[in-house]
Design a protein around this nucleic acid. Structure first.
Lengths: 157, 157
DNA sequence: TCATTTGTGCAACATTGTAGCATTTGCGTG
DNA sequence: CACGCAAATGCTACAATGTTGCACAAATGA
């Protein structure tokens, strides 16, 4: 069961995960400043980030990257199956690393605090609920509502 | 069980449904050309439509409406609970009439044929799959994959 | 080192939606 | 029916989020 949103999505950088360089060269891509930087940001992100947030992270790290180049790097990562797009409530895509192929997880968007959390338990239930003949393919799936933190009554002051 | 997408979403205009005028005046809104026209389009639409599609329908019917006015009419409908927003694969919202309050349904977006279908059976399963403390609120929920038509092998020629 | 091909960076454009504001219109009242 | 006023409309601008085209730079293999 998932109660605390901050631990609900404990993805940040498994120690044995392949390096950015490895991820890139494995698909025959060139190892460029932007791709490495974006990968590093995504790898240490606790939840899906949109283009703006990624750019902000990069700037915080003292890196300057062109807006278009960022879009293209992200597009490439998605195309290569390294990252996925997640639809948010606004019309901006969020991006997230694909952790292990074969396991898809859904996202929950809290309409109170705006956070996007990852839910590992939902997909099996969904697969059973879909009509026969339908196939659930994409991890891009977002539920909306209120998360545990926001439904909980405030602590007595 | 839902097998045929064309019947899966059999919403078009129940004969006893309230008229556009009734729907509008019931919330204290003014009955204007645009609201009535938009409601009529949504009422006869077999699936959620985005702003562009609605405008196209109106033009096909010989009606000319301002882009902004359309947005505002749609916003008002959503605000009044008459319509809901559905997120699509592009960043444009789709709109759909709320049929009966109290019953929320999810949407399935087929990535082959691009159709958005409505699934009545999914929500109960979802509610059980969410972690404790989480509340599923919004009907705006889209699953992605392939629908029955598109997963089925082509008929032997 | 050199050539080739892949990415980058810039500027311009496209789509989707919002904001401000003057004008028109629906509709209750006299 | 005429009036008056709030509610909607219809501009025009503007904002956010991507995309496209093209010249230039840089990664990689020979």
């Amino acid at each position: 069961m998932i109660a605390n949103p901050d631990t609900a999505h404990s993805h940040p950088a498994a120690p044995d995960a392949p390096s950015a360089r490895e991820l890139i060269t494995a698909r025959g891509g060139r190892v460029t400043r932007t791709r490495v930087a974006v990968l590093d940001v995504l790898r240490s992100a606790p939840r899906p980030l949109n283009h703006d947030q990624i750019a902000a992270e990069l700037e915080a790290a003292g890196e300057q990257h062109d807006r278009v180049t960022l879009y293209r790097a992200l597009d490439w990562l998605v195309e290569q199956g390294i990252a996925t797009r997640v639809a948010g409530s606004d019309r901006a895509w969020k991006f997230e690393l694909v952790r292990d192929t074969g396991h898809r997880h859904a996202h929950f968007h809290c309409q109170r605090c705006g956070r996007v959390l990852c839910l590992d338990e939902v997909e099996p239930a969904l697969a059973g609920a879909l009509p026969a003949g339908f196939r659930l393919e994409q991890a891009e799936l977002v539920l909306h509502g209120a998360c545990a933190d926001c439904t909980a009554p405030p602590p007595t002051p």
